[in-house]
Design a protein around this nucleic acid. Structure first.
Lengths: 205, 205
DNA sequence: ACCTGAACACCGTTCAAGT
DNA sequence: ACCTGAACACCGTTCAAGT
């Protein structure tokens, strides 16, 4: 069968399949992708430039998943706006935790996330931060969310049975347990810490 | 020349060369490594298990570079201790920024960094945090430092000429400029934010 | 326009053969 | 003990050939 009346492939279809492979296997290859789509590897190149472009399309997919509409108008609470955006940002990552390591391979800062950056800038400016501080605050949140997302992809029993922990560390590990939402709790705690810090610095101005 | 009286290779030598390749080229391959060491690729396997182990050895090299001795004894200021450790932690990453993406590929939490985790646990416990919060605080710092390190590997003109920025964002970008230490400033700002937040929560207990 | 088959350069790894 | 050469399976990509 040389060519069906309707194409068997599209960027859309390819990205879906690649994302599924990453979710289940932690990575993807062009031959593996082709097999999954019942196609020869060379066929993929009729729709995407190559492997790198597929990664970028997955990045865009995740970023587009972030909802910013409506959040954080002029109606006041900049702290709440930042918190909502941060959670939304991380939530979109958490849907495909194993994708994150692939995305950090190049750190190509596409402008896909600009909707969120704009919303954050508005919120921090409303909080009274100077322009230079606004960018730093956004960068801080960005670093924290990305780092937290990497934590999601880590194996569950990260710090299990560890003989080399001292007393405070051992107590901390015992208290945290291996709760399935340990990473979630840690994220909320960290976000709370950042917000407390921003509030303190906002008042200090 | 089949075999010299003294070995031409060692894990030490291999890691040095790999690190140099990553620093200059952003990545390394087994053939490239071998060529640089004037050796055939298969020779490498007499000293390391494979490519993955080389990556782990580079990770260990970076982590061992962190100095924790002496810092944060019982002598009081837990905030200062945390700040020193965070800077030390990030400094060791910043010496090989292009290595970070390779390290995040697996997020293997080796216990190489346990000296620092222990020191952090002691400091946060001294700050009055409950055991469960201690682990969350450490995780927060870990995420933030790792995310910041990735920022270091990013290209310089990250947010250059961007038409889609709104007014607050544009002002922020203009204020920050493309200072060579923009990432450094952002890190210090973020660390300050976290510390303010921890202090606020410490007092609140 | 889009799928295929064959080909290429490259990679990571293994292993018997050498000294 | 340690380097080599040959070999293997696999990968990403190209491109002329088909319809």
């Amino acid at each position: 069968m040389p060519r069906p009346s309707r194409p068997k492939l599209s960027p859309q279809i390819i990205v879906d399949a690649a994302l599924h492979m990453v979710d289940t296997a932690g990575d993807f290859t062009m031959p593996g992708l082709a097999e999954r789509l019942n196609v020869r590897p060379s066929s993929l190149y009729n729709h995407v430039a190559g492997r790198a472009e597929i990664v970028e399309l997955m990045r865009a997919r995740v970023m587009d998943d972030i909802h910013v509409e409506g959040v954080g108008a002029e109606d006041g609470d900049w702290v709440e706006t930042v918190a909502v955006l941060a959670r939304e940002y991380r939530l979109s990552y958490s849907k495909h935790p194993r994708l994150i390591p692939l995305l950090t391979a190049h750190t190509v800062q596409t402008d896909v996330a600009f909707g969120m950056y704009n919303a954050l800038a508005t919120a921090f400016a409303a909080g009274g931060f100077a322009p230079a501080q606004v960018l730093h605050a956004i960068t801080t949140l960005d670093s924290f969310v990305l780092g937290s997302a990497l934590d999601l992809a880590a194996p569950q029993e990260v710090w299990a049975n560890t003989p080399r922990a001292n007393e405070p560390m051992r107590a901390a590990l015992a208290a945290a347990g291996t709760a399935p939402h340990r990473a979630d709790d840690a994220f909320e705690f960290g976000l709370g810490t950042l917000i407390s810090g921003w509030q303190a610095r906002s008042r200090a101005v």
